[in-house]
Nucleic acid binder design. Structure first.
Lengths: 196, 196
DNA sequence: AATATAAGCGGACCGTGGTCCGTTTAGCCG
DNA sequence: CGGCTAAACGGACCACGGTCCGCTTATATT
């Protein structure tokens, strides 16, 4: 019997070898994505590169999408940090409207930069609500600062939606709309929503 | 040498057996989707059900997504018809704002209804720009009627974006937001954009 | 009707994502 | 330190999407 009773249901601490493997896999995946491009990274390849069996890989990361989501998360985290505590106008210090506009532009570029990875991470449900929910929370906060009234959750979602890759991809790759026009369009949308 | 010179580059008329097979495949796919659900419909199954070889199937419909897009298209077409020439407020006859609101609600329900199929048809780039571009054009038209000024293409895209399945799925399945709230949120968005 | 030919056909084959299960090992306890 | 158990491992195995290529057949032409 264990000395310390498990409080609530802790997700069971990861065994040392498990942790080591998780890191090895993530590192391998990151390396391969960088060198070969997302498309060429197969699960077998990653397993080989990480020096583990395929089974291990699938136990740590539920499936390919999960692995890609984890890889994507590396950069996502850095981006979130720069939103929370980076230099203005993206970070704190600038007036709310400027911050909101900067946020949109930054998100736009970031998404476009990681387009392949985002596609491979698939369905946002899989890539944890985390990313999406962070963005939503931040926009909601800025809308609040701007004195906007109404259902802020919905409003934030509406502002974020046109920045989703599904939409962006269509605009950029099928309709050949320039980045500038998309940015301008988004700015316009924001101004209409906040009635500035 | 042919009697009639090909004007421009006609896409070469489909051979009779080819046409027959295309229909057989589509019918089989439709039947299977209805009875088994989208997830259980494999390409082999469809081929078998249609009584054709796998190769044939892949020649007619580039890939699984293409086939699903074709199946989806059946209902999509009917929906488009009801938008263009159905009864008001969705169809013509009602004032533009009412039509726009009705359009959003209808689109919302339709997307939710075909959620699985839309996911299986994947990437909107594949499911031809057609569907998306029809919706965009219609919204643009209604915005024009409403006397909205600005980059209507972008505005229409912004209004359509929150109705995309990626967004809806997140809201309904992860955040458990009610349909009514989503509708209300969209109505609010529309009113802000058109400044009604 | 006979012939030519390009379009179409089908199913063997392949790569990749994902599962399963017999074997190994980390962590704990006496 | 030796033994025990649950967790983790790894690679054989499977299913499904997608390709390839030798054979068949619709259609046009005479």
């Amino acid at each position: 019997m264990p000395h310390l009773l498990p409080l609530a249901d802790e997700p069971a601490p990861e065994r040392a070898d498990a942790a080591r493997n998780r890191e090895a896999i993530l590192a391998a995946a990151l390396r391969l994505v960088r060198t070969q491009g997302v498309g060429c990274v197969t699960m077998d390849t990653v397993a080989a590169e990480a020096g583990v069996g395929k089974g291990t890989l699938f136990r740590r990361f539920e499936n390919r999408e999960g692995l890609m989501a984890a890889v994507l998360n590396e950069s996502e985290t850095a981006w979130q940090a720069s939103v929370i505590s980076g230099p203005p106008p993206l970070g704190p210090g600038a007036p709310p409207l400027e911050r909101l506009l900067a946020f949109g532009h930054s998100r736009l570029r970031t998404n476009l930069t990681h387009a392949e990875l985002i596609a491979a991470a698939g369905h946002p449900g899989a890539r944890s609500a985390a990313a999406l929910s962070f963005a939503n929370m931040h926009v909601r906060y800025l809308l609040g600062e701007l004195g906007v009234h109404g259902d802020l959750l919905m409003l934030a979602t509406a502002l974020l939606a046109p920045l989703e890759m599904v939409v962006l991809d269509q605009q950029v790759n099928a309709e050949h709309i320039t980045l500038e026009r998309i940015e301008a369009g988004w700015d316009d949308l924001v101004r209409r929503v906040v009635r500035a």
